[in-house]
Nucleic acid binder design. Structure first.
Lengths: 236, 236
DNA sequence: CGTCAGCTTGATTACTTTCAATTGTTGTGG
DNA sequence: CCACAACAATTGAAAGTAATCAAGCTGACG
């Protein structure tokens, strides 16, 4: 058995009890833990790369991760976020295709790696697990389609507002209840909203001037989330 | 039992043998056929509407369908296509949410409607069926993400080229091996590429002048698909 | 205290939308 | 069969938006 980091428990005792693996019995979770590996990823490090092949499933124990793809010209586009308890790479696992995106730690992360064979045999045996995966895929697909329509039809100002909103929905606020809980570079924000770094900067400082957000150092403060939502003309 | 159109067979004898239901045994297909309804939809008619609730699954017997969403300002965005043997509305069914998109017949269609209870009990019993659904979702998600990145990063000319390419991949050519197999209005093409009707028209006629495509009446002829593919990814 | 990466600002250019006007096409009733 | 209405396609000019290119600024860190 591979050695994991000592501070990371077995699946059966995991405090996250993942949105997907909650369907498993204790015995099944024990099976999942076999050959489990746990790794530490420093902020900015990649967990897997678009184009590589999968040898199992990743499960985020702590930290925040972004999934991004490279466009033809090498420009990055963030397609999804993931946090504690989320599963990464299940698509590559299930369809035996290479990873469709690159996973990067947005902050220091602990991530577990579950062996392919264990996952597959559990999926075949446990139909609740399949249903959970279907539900997760459904949710991802809905988000992707919303993201798609936002990028296609909205102005940069709306897209930037939408992006901040989306980050908030995924990761929430700090304890003060109004500061976005992740540190993002201007370039990263641009990659989420599908624009250039310069335009992202200009738009953020406009939103700042208009009192929609407050830029305090590198962090973004949202005093009134309704106001921001109006700015994004958000629709769910 | 509801009456279907006489020319539509039972699921067990269906010539399409759907990508998803091929996992079923004959007996299971017979079960699926119970309470099956079949309907004819004229070109332009809607099969279901975004926001409504699902009472079962749709399976396309013949014809072509587009799935689209409405943006904040009422502009339509096509998110996906479907043809013979494809399943519609499985997300709404599985997660008990309203339909996330509106399905519209792009040409005259025959579409079967399968009862919710039959579908759900088969999904729970047959794990191959679940896996097929997972694979279909996986494919849809990948397409949505590709579409997303295209809309976010490409010029209108590239997006229009990409859209024609995508339509070709989904529906193929006519017998002549070079004419796109669907009739689309300029407005529809614009809704796929995420632009305005006028810009779509201008771009199409430019591609025509540049010899990439030929506009013959309402149909689009692609003499050299490689040339079009180059247009879709490379730059002007 | 210098350096380097990330951030910011300005000016210019390119692209796309918008609005408006015209032409073409199709279907329908007299 | 024609006239008309309704809709789809096209074209032009003007306005707006965002990308690009270029140059300075700032703060963290050795």
């Amino acid at each position: 058995m591979k050695e994991g980091h000592s501070q990371i428990p077995l699946c059966a005792e995991c405090t996250n009890d993942s949105k997907i693996f909650c369907a498993l019995s204790l015995a099944e979770k024990a099976q999942l833990s076999q050959n489990k590996g746990s790794n530490f990823y420093k902020k900015g490090q990649n967990i897997f790369y678009q184009g590589n092949y999968s040898h199992g499933l990743y499960c985020i124990y702590s930290g925040k991760v972004k999934l991004s793809k490279l466009g033809e010209d090498g420009k990055e586009q963030v397609v999804r976020f993931a946090g504690s308890g989320d599963i990464l790479g299940y698509r590559a696992l299930l369809s035996n295709e290479p990873y469709q995106a690159t996973a990067t730690a947005m902050e220091d992360c602990y991530v577990c790696h579950l062996a392919k064979e264990n996952c597959m045999s559990l999926i075949e045996k446990n139909s609740d697990l399949s249903l959970n995966i279907i539900k997760q895929l459904t949710k991802d697909l809905r988000n992707a389609e919303l993201h798609l329509i936002n990028l296609a039809q909205k102005t940069v100002r709306e897209r930037i507002s939408e992006s901040i909103l989306h980050i908030h929905e995924t990761f929430g606020f700090e304890e003060d209840g109004k500061t976005i809980n992740v540190s993002l570079s201007r370039a990263e924000i641009a990659d989420i909203a599908g624009t250039t770094t310069e335009t992202a900067i200009r738009t953020l400082s406009q939103l700042n001037q208009d009192g929609i957000i407050q830029l305090v150092g590198k962090s973004i403060v949202v005093p009134d989330i309704q106001k921001l939502a109006k700015e994004a003309s958000a629709f769910t």
